[in-house]
Write a protein that binds this DNA or RNA. Sequence first.
DNA 1: TTTTTAATTAACAAATTGTTTATTGTTAAT
DNA 2: ATTAACAATAAACAATTTGTTAATTAAAAA
Lengths: 258, 258
Amino acid sequence: MSNKQALKQYDIKKYRTPDGYTSDICVFTIISEKNEAYKPPTMDLKIMLIKRAGLDSEGNMNIEANKWAIPGGFVQDDETGFQAAKRELEEETNISGIHIKQFGVYDKPGRDPRGWIISNAHYAIVPDTYLSLRKAQDDAADIELFSIKDVLKLDLAFDHEQIIGDAIQVITNDLLQTTVAKNFLPENFTYSELQAVLRTVTDDPAILSDQSFSRKIKSLPFIQEVQGKTTTRTSKRATKLYTFIEMDILKPIYTARY
Amino acid sequence: MSNKQALKQYDIKKYRTPDGYTSDICVFTIISEKNEAYKPPTMDLKIMLIKRAGLDSEGNMNIEANKWAIPGGFVQDDETGFQAAKRELEEETNISGIHIKQFGVYDKPGRDPRGWIISNAHYAIVPDTYLSLRKAQDDAADIELFSIKDVLKLDLAFDHEQIIGDAIQVITNDLLQTTVAKNFLPENFTYSELQAVLRTVTDDPAILSDQSFSRKIKSLPFIQEVQGKTTTRTSKRATKLYTFIEMDILKPIYTARY
DNA sequence: TTTTTAATTAACAAATTGTTTATTGTTAAT
DNA sequence: ATTAACAATAAACAATTTGTTAATTAAAAA
């Protein structure tokens, strides 16, 4: 093999190179649907899409015109795909410290009719406050939030149906198996606020039950009760606040209960 | 944004394109260290590396010569990175149906001195039988298996230290949170064989304890007892055999015990 | 003052786990 | 033939955690 390997490794010119390298971002947000006073919120997980213009900048018919797509752009040769995602999103939203995670590469030949273009896909979590603002201020009819329950029914550009489907699966997993939920919550949150975030992606009865969840939250090693502070955001009665502790959690499926 | 977006999306020529797109593979295997008769095995998780040649095919000094590296090669324009990984590995090993999973993209500017080369990284699980054979038959001094405990101490080519470190973390997670362990085991396996696989990546006392693990395995929904078949591979006494059932498992960290 | 409601505690049966001790069935040694 | 050794696993039981239902608390609203 070492010969074959050597050839492969060094004869760059023999191989066609890609026509483009893009970074695409599935922007997720959670909006509180009912936000009445003294009530725990009801939340829905949404993804932001842009509507592709009918005509391009030179007035010609656009590729995949009028379809919904995830935002993205070309990666520059002095940055990583991750940095490109971060740059584009922070330029766009004027928010820094956005949670972004790379989750997949999309490189199927023919996926983009314009050439051999490799997409590095990310998901991001953006506070709903920004996105509502953004939409109002811009009157941008070409931006919309879609519930993850509906989004896959749309007519989506390129292979974005695949990408979005994967993104939804990845964020669902991450919400349940990491502490990424903290990016949807204030620094200090009540048990019912965390519960509302998790309900957007699970029906687990142990999470749905108020009694079980409010008891369980006290014994989770990655969540700490905030001493001496309460809120009445979700209830007339003062409610305890919790905060996430930074740590890795790895619970084997072999030791869980079923 | 729709204007800026439009520009980015359509003006392909404005952007430099990558000089190469490669598919790299971290090949893992588990070797049974002590394989005495009637004893449960002791296993070690290993990664296969190749030693880069000192000179290239034209007799010139090689880049990153004599360093250890993960195998890989250029992706062709009619295949995906995943297919390239599969193709290379199956060509190489003559085994089909190898478990391969994409886990990361490595695209940091300067990571490869030969140009802007994007690496799509995968891990694969290959039976130890092949790799031992391969090594003996070829007398290939340029191929070696390294324990995951030692491999990061080596002098590794390019950014392969990063890639291998990530691969180890990903396979550790997958071994504990998915049923990927089945790729290291025969179709029907004993509790102590599964236990030995898991021990290569965890110290969890509930997995280490024979009594607990042999009791627990009976109640796991993704494992089924094989009726009417036993083995004496691991014990003088006939031992029950189990098999994995295909299913997704998603256990929230919020419902686990700590 | 009473009603309403979210948060929380209480209480208890049911299920699971940690742990220790015994049993089983075989091989290998005496 | 007997016994020692040993992996597998069953038995037993206390400790812990869960599911579930009921009760309590505190503040707004009627």
